[in-house]
């Protein structure tokens, strides 16, 4: 059913465009906004605008950062191991690694993976920016690049591509292990994952 107000209808439609939001939820959110005080709504709109105006990409790691904070906190932090760079697809993964609290190296966000089907080549993602961080003229001495891309065909293409470029530079290129989630029972793991885990076994 349609609402008698064009403005309400328009907001519902905008909400419904967001990922994971169906029309029902969009209606609920709209009703919520309608009943909220004006000052609260203004906070929301300015937060939305701020994201577009004040968020930039760090010129070093390409992760998102605030205007005026470039390079980002992670890149300038003195507490991080500057010899290791972990390469990920998107800012979400940086967050995931940071949550673990175990990784202390630097990051590099590619903002995508190589996929000729979608017209995305190596130059359309931040590969060149990664090479710049590693070249001979750079003071930071990067010794290891850890590839932490998703285990898709495209993630694999991108990993192999990067490793092909980096290996001649004498960089140690590694990738995170792909295998069995912690807490999972072996009998419930699918065969492809299990055989990959077997191939990637390590000495103890």
């Amino acid at each position: 059913m349609r609402y008698s107000s064009g403005a309400v209808e328009a907001l519902i439609e905008e909400f419904a465009k967001l990922p994971g939001i169906g029309r029902k939820t969009a209606q609920r959110l709209t009703m919520h906004v309608l009943q909220t005080r004006r000052s609260e709504v203004e906070k929301l709109t300015s937060a939305l605008i701020d994201v577009k105006e004040k968020v930039i990409r760090c010129s070093v790691c390409q992760n998102i950062t605030d205007l005026g904070v470039d390079p980002c906190h992670l890149c300038t932090s003195t507490g991080r191991d500057r010899t290791v760079i972990c390469v990920v697809e998107s800012p979400t993964e940086v967050l995931a690694f940071e949550k673990t609290g175990h990784y202390k190296g630097l990051y590099h966000v590619l903002h995508g993976v190589i996929s000729p089907l979608d017209g995305v080549g190596p130059d359309d993602i931040k590969v060149r920016e990664l090479l710049v961080r590693i070249g001979p003229s750079v003071s930071d001495e990067v010794r290891e690049v850890v590839l932490a891309l998703n285990p898709t065909v495209e993630g694999e293409t991108t990993s192999l591509y990067i490793s092909k470029l980096l290996k001649p530079l004498g960089i140690n290129v590694t990738r995170i292990a792909r295998g069995i989630p912690v807490g999972a029972e072996l009998e419930f793991i699918d065969e492809a994952t299990l055989s990959r885990a077997m191939e990637g076994r390590s000495a103890i």
């Binding site: 000729p116 065909v153 293409t157």
Partner: peptide, 29 residues
């Protein structure tokens, strides 16, 4: 999936030098 990607690359490339490494990688896969 790799085949689709490789065929997409082969059918759309303009400058061979620019796609050489991508093609090598897709061939390995």
């Amino acid at each position: 999936r790799v085949l689709q990607q490789r065929n997409a690359l082969l059918s759309s490339y303009g400058d061979l030098a620019a796609v050489e490494t991508s093609l090598e990688v897709l061939t390995d896969q």
